[in-house]
Write a protein that binds this DNA or RNA. Sequence first.
RNA 1: GCCUUGAUAGUUUAAUUGGUAAAACACUCGACCGAUAAUCGGGCGUUUCUGGUUCGAGUCCAGAUCGAGGUACCA
Length: 949
Amino acid sequence: MADYKHTLNLPETEFAMRGNLAQREPEFLKRWDDMDLYGKLRQAGAGKPLFVLHDGPPYANGDIHLGHAVNKILKDIIVKSKVLSGFDAPYIPGWDCHGLPIELQVEKKKGKAGVKISPAEFRKACREYAMRQVEGQRKDFKRLGVIGDWDHPYLTMDFKFEADIIRALGRIIDKGHLHKGAKPVHWCIDCGSALAEAEVEYEDKTSPAIDVRFEVLDEAAFMAQCQHVPGKSGKGPLSVVIWTTTPWTLPANQAVALNPELDYVVVQTDGIGEHVPERLVIAHALLEDVMARYGQEHYHVIANVKGQALEGLKLAHPFYEREVPIILGDHVTTEAGTGAVHTAPGHGQDDYVVGSRYNLKVDNPVDGSGKFVPGTPLLEGQHVFKANDAVLDILKTKNALVHQAALRHSYPHCWRHKSPIIFRATPQWFISMNQQGLRKTALEQIKQTQWVPSWGEARIIGMVENRPDWCISRQRTWGVPIALFVHKQTNEPHPRTNELIETVAKRVEEKGIDAWFDLEPEELLGAEAKDYVKVTDTLDVWFDSGVTHYAVLKQREGIEANPVADLYLEGSDQHRGWFQSSLLTSIAMYGTAPYKAALTHGFTVDEKGHKMSKSKGNGVEPQKVANTLGADILRLWVAATDYRTEMSGSDQILKRTADAYRRIRNTIRYLLSNLYDFDPAQHALPADKLLSLDKWAVARTAQLQDSMLQDYEKYEFHHIYQKVHNFCAVDMGSFYLDITKDRQYTTQKDSHARRSTQTAMYHIIEAIVRWLAPILSFTAEETWNFIPGQRNESVFLNGWYQLPVVSLDGELAMQDWARIIEARDAINKELEQLRVAGGIGSGLAADVTLYCGREIHDLLAKLGDELRFVLITSTATIQPVSDAPPAEAQHYTLRNGDEMWVAVSPSAHTKCVRCWHHREDIGVNSEHPELCGRCVENVVGSGEQRRFA
RNA sequence: GCCUUGAUAGUUUAAUUGGUAAAACACUCGACCGAUAAUCGGGCGUUUCUGGUUCGAGUCCAGAUCGAGGUACCA
């Protein structure tokens, strides 16, 4: 048998079938670094319309996890797609560097600031620690193929940034949003300082649980609000009874809270203990429990009243000469107690919130060491927990104690000392939501912003509507100072605050935040210094990151006057966090939101939808994925997953993604391998000279590209993934590439038929490589250099591909090809039947006869002899239905109603050794006895002509 | 507890205004041996559950279950 293989145009390429991504990707990273891709992108972008995706800073602590990877990859996909769409899209990554978690890490190694180590040294250690964290995270982010200004990221601890935080604060003060107030904080008596939420742990503790009378002052006014039970009149004193587990907070009591919706009763008792008959006010739902607790068997309800009706009525404090009002709050429940809650705004978060609604005094008679301050009647100098007994004694003396018991319950403790902590009001700084209309403007601006997904709007509106004033002060070491001098008497900031802040900012720009902590007030205030106190509180770190629009957007991304980014993109937790802190500071400073659109992605969860955690061992580490499957697989997973809800990730799911990747990669490889001898400059045919099927392929590609560009526009990457994959597997793999294989391989190298396919393939690969670039960045860059023709050094330095416009209006239109595909599917089913029956192996061993209804007949007839190439069979004959299909022919009804009978049979002819078609005309040329006529023509003749396929 | 949000084949995603549940992957059976750790063909769902509205519900309504994010409370 003669060997004709050398007369075929078999595919060849150096583009590896296996990606070897984990090993190869670092080479591309180096290449991008060496060519300064980011710098080149900026140069190329000069003058183009700007698209700013402003990066939200991750916290500089710990290794990056899958959620970080998702966030950065989504941002990268968007930035890159905008570049391809012709925008100048800078990307400046940043880090959040101050704050408690870093302090705690440093404290573990160096000890507590101000105790074992000076605050200045402590801050230095924090700065060094944060820097190391940034290095580690930067390395991991870069490894994922994220392109950005990694050499010049923004760090909230840069001296310049720290100075700008102070300037931003100055501007907010200037606009009148700051106020000083008091707020209860967790306070450890042993530490002598406030604790952050993260430093509090909950443990069981036994406390005295007491019921206390608050006598009604104006009995007539009270009873007037009630509905009396007929025939029941009462006698004896009338009191509202509260229940508390912290007797020591009673000195700070300012009110008694009832639930407006609850039913309360006035109950007549015979007398509790040795006391005389009296009337008590209790929530109806708790009446039986309470009476049982008091040991009362004989009692009766004499009146009913809604909590609502009692608002504002005055009660007597149990042991001070003080009138306290009845107030209303939804936090009052019937789970425990009496339905009436002792309210001390200085000693509880809830009491503070409800108290601020009623303008109650935030009284805190307890000092930092837990003792009642001088001047506290009856209790001065006593330690709060020991004062419990004293309070009980006083209550007994005043006949105010109804009942007492011990209660074991969960109670906050200091994580260092394991000792119970207290709530204690301390002076704090706030950004007011209302005094300059911040809340109102924020709500207006939220409506001006595009939220993706749209429910983000309702979410953040709900939060902004309900949030209290923003407490921006912390009593911490590693943070940007609230650089104010306040008057010793008035507590007011210095009148020249504006100017002082700029002076301080300049110093901080030189020396960092220590410039403030080291500052002697005299240096700036001179003789006035004796009247002022230098504030040493630090800012909430949410303030730091909240002003990146000022410190970064305004100063580095080419947006000057009023920094507004095109897009902020973060996880859904940031409606509470960065989206909000950025919104509030921006409005306080400029009156507008800092972003035009805010996009949120869900959290990463495992395949069952449960959150990832170390203890469950269901986590996916991005570093590990990059080093085994490759970063492109992780990127493909991010793109393939609908980020609007939770994103499921697991080893299984990533393996599926890797399988899908291989399909895409092999399609690319096959296209490249068929272009090894193709030079577009020399061989490309004009669009109107292409074969019909090749026109279809180009048109299909263009169609898909249009819809994909819309998907990029709408940030719906999972649709792009589905479309690309489907294109590779269906349009290309099972149809176009399968059919054109014969033409590629068997026609003459430089024939019109072959150059036509190559032209189509060339356009297709030029398009695909760009579709993929934002997602499979490494693979696209690798592909870029394998595509024939002149090209620049990176796929990212290009726009989307302009596919040639093809017109299929001639004999076969797009919908005609769709119907041909439909007919082909039916024929494939029959071929499979024959194959299973053992009649044939390859489809090329079969003859097909079709008995067709009118329309499909006319359509297939247009293909003439080339129908067999479309069906990939040796012969394909069409007959009208009137020719009476044989019994063995299978009947199909096509979508347009046309009928078709399909008959398949093994070919009677021998197989051409070159093209593998079974043909009657094998051996027509005696010099090539094993070849069919067509192959003879292609080997020694002038080559076959094709029109359609 | 409250606010926001989700649930479609083993997996990832589709399904205009309610109108026969669609792909791909995986799996499986087979073919090919000129994309070969590749390629081609054939095969697989009570749309989480329970009710309701409707001629008709994945889609609308009510409730439940399980999950995610945020927030509050434990006086």
